[in-house]
Design a binder for these strands. Sequence first.
DNA 1: GTCTATAGGACGATAGAC
DNA 2: GTCTATCGTCCTATAGAC
Lengths: 191, 191
Amino acid sequence: MDTRERLIESARELLWEFGYVGTSPKAIQQRSGAGQGSMYHHFRGKPDLALAAITRSADELRDRAEAEFSGPGTPVQRVTTYLRRERDALRGCPVGRLTHDRDVMADPALRRPVEETFAWLRTRLAGVLAEAVAEGELDAALDPAATATALVAVLQGGYVLARAAGDAEVYAQSVDGALGLLAGHVRSTST
Amino acid sequence: MDTRERLIESARELLWEFGYVGTSPKAIQQRSGAGQGSMYHHFRGKPDLALAAITRSADELRDRAEAEFSGPGTPVQRVTTYLRRERDALRGCPVGRLTHDRDVMADPALRRPVEETFAWLRTRLAGVLAEAVAEGELDAALDPAATATALVAVLQGGYVLARAAGDAEVYAQSVDGALGLLAGHVRSTST
DNA sequence: GTCTATAGGACGATAGAC
DNA sequence: GTCTATCGTCCTATAGAC
């Protein structure tokens, strides 16, 4: 793992834990073991390095979700797999948390991956839900787009509530609640 | 409105928009029209002023929710009123956003009002849902506590998604999705 | 490619006059 | 109660040697 790579990975972890404003170039350098000069050799500055880190986190999030959405099982089973996937609840979402970072949202370049990630996620999940409706697995009264947005919101909000409570179990509870609500709309239980 | 009051209100607005880390004492002073000396006369420092501001925002949130939960209508109608209340979606939740602020979560005094607000909110909403189940308005299969947590999460996550999209309509969509999911569990539609 | 030195500014807070 | 002056620290970035 070369210096450039270590800088990106260090930036990713610090951005996840402390946010953009709370992450200083100095902290990234120390964590990666790179010196001041190295960082400014590989990147133009903090925003440039942050863009590389954010883009990578966004790509990872998307790839993992896509694997679950296009995996085995019925549409509802795949959605359940996605929702139930183990997550580091108290750490929160590495992409979603940037939403509360003024400096990120104010910079179009940094904001773009955040915006695109959630736009894709909502659309992709809506597609899987539409499949479920089309196959009769889900109640036709359910609007795929609105339901998808609500489910993604449950995850993002679950992180907020878990952090507020200081208890990862609260995240699990909000997923349980969402699945309980969804269960009432499942028509066929064919395995 | 005296100086102390103006300081608290200015701190509330800045905390809401920029978060704790992003809000400097200097900015609060300028917005409130108070000088450096005034702020340090009325408050011990930034954390002390922030505590007053956060506590007030938390109390306000709680009072508004309580008014809706104990208002007129059936339990499900009251929950719907709460969820549908107009909110400044792109601004987000003044309390929930502090969850992503490291300095707030690291300080037990500042963290307490955040923790207590959501603990109360989830418990109180669970109580209204339990009423609905007891009265037969809601499906008995629904767990009040988990459902309440999921619904609060939809609001908090709705803010995240709306900010990511830069579109308040996304917040409304996640509320629509949640109500659509809840609708499948409503038993009697007695007015 | 990596190092050290240094710049210019903002931060949070304190001192002491009025 | 409010003012101005000042402190020490950290921030992001640049310069220039090696």
